[in-house]
Amino acid sequence: WVPTKREEKYGVAFYNYDARGADELSLQIGDTVHILETYEGWYRGYTLRKKSKKGIFPASYIHLKE
């Protein structure tokens, strides 16, 4: 896992994603996520609506905010 280059990196989910394991994070369309790390097509972070739950999710489900 590699920390993100920018201190504040955010994105928005444009697909729903159902977590398949305890380390994964479920997403709903429109969720804003804070991205902490990246690795081979995956991000690690949390949604702003539930900051206490961190997990991994596919990068392809996220539109990055500039």
Rank of each mutant, 00 (worst) to 15 (best):
H34K: 13
L25N: 01
V2A: 10
A13E: 03
G21W: 06
A22G: 10
Y17M: 03
Y43K: 00
R20L: 08
K9R: 14
S60K: 15
G11D: 02
N16D: 10
E66Y: 12
E66Q: 12
K9E: 08
R6D: 13
A22N: 10
N16M: 07
T47P: 05
H34V: 15
Y10M: 06
Y15A: 15
G41H: 07
Y17H: 02
N16V: 07
E66P: 14
G55A: 02
A59H: 05
E66M: 13
F57N: 01
Y43F: 08
T38I: 11
Y43G: 00
T47N: 15
L36N: 04
F57E: 00
T4A: 15
D18Q: 14
Q28W: 07
V12Y: 08
S26L: 02
Y61F: 09
E37V: 04
I29R: 10
I62A: 00
W1Y: 07
G41W: 05
L48W: 07
T38H: 10
E40Y: 06
W1V: 07
S60F: 07
G41S: 06
H34C: 15
I62P: 02
K53A: 09
Q28Y: 07
E40V: 07
E37C: 09
G30N: 04
A13G: 02
G21S: 14
R20Y: 05
I29G: 02
Y10L: 07
D18C: 13
E66F: 13
R20N: 09
E66V: 13
R20I: 09
Y39S: 13
K53D: 08
Y61T: 11
K51I: 10
T47E: 08
N16W: 07
K65Y: 15
N16F: 07
L25Q: 00
Y43T: 00
G21V: 05
S52D: 13
G55E: 01
Q28V: 13
S26Q: 05
K50V: 11
D23V: 06
D18R: 11
G55Y: 02
H34Q: 06
Y17K: 00
E37T: 05
K65F: 15
E37K: 02
R20M: 09
D31Q: 05
I56A: 08
Y15W: 13
K50P: 15
Y43M: 08
T32D: 06
G41N: 07
A19H: 01
Y43I: 04
A19N: 03
R20F: 05
S60E: 12
G45S: 06
F57H: 03
L27T: 00
T38R: 14
V33C: 03
N16K: 12
K51P: 15
H34Y: 15
A13S: 05
I29V: 12
G11T: 03
H63Q: 13
H34I: 14
Q28E: 10
F14W: 14
L48I: 11
Q28M: 11
Q28C: 13
E24G: 03
Y17Q: 00
Y17T: 00
V2P: 08
D31H: 03
L27N: 00
K50R: 11
H63G: 07
K9N: 06
W42N: 00
D18F: 11
I62S: 01
S26P: 05
L64K: 01
G55W: 02
L25G: 00
Y10T: 07
G41K: 06
S52R: 08
R49G: 14
Q28A: 09
K54C: 14
E40H: 09
I56E: 02
D23K: 06
V2E: 09
A19P: 05
S60H: 11
T4I: 10
A19Q: 01
